[in-house]
Amino acid sequence: MSKTILTVDDSISIRQMVAFTLKQAGFNVVEASDGEQGLQVARNNSVDLIITDLNMPNMDGLQMIQNLRGDAAYKFTPILMLTTESDDTKKMAGKQAGATGWLVKPFNPEQLLKVINKVMAA
């Protein structure tokens, strides 16, 4: 069975692009538009990897990651954050919250798949 990836982003176009790329690559994709929804979707589904934006309304990416890490089911699930900031403070904050890795925006589909490959066995 193919792996399920949750993509959380308030930007529909980014989400569309991520989802399209992942589906092309044979993954199942579930989507959410902010951290709150992301948590809900993650808890209602069995997700193998999460890709999340950081700046989002209602609940931001960092908070969502922290919450997810508190769930037994998502303690070790790879979580990638999308960030436009290439500065290290954001990455550090992300790591501290429990993110596995990051992907700097702008990115293209190839880069996305490469990073996924890095943190999750196919």
Binding site: I12, Q40, N44, A72, K75
Partner: peptide, 20 residues
């Protein structure tokens, strides 16, 4: 080994999802 007990929730997502 990762010990992951994932909730199998048959219920579909309740979020109102828009399609373009």
């Amino acid at each position: 080994k990762q010990q992951i007990n994932k909730k199998e929730n048959a219920e579909a997502n309740k979020e109102s999802i828009f399609i373009r």
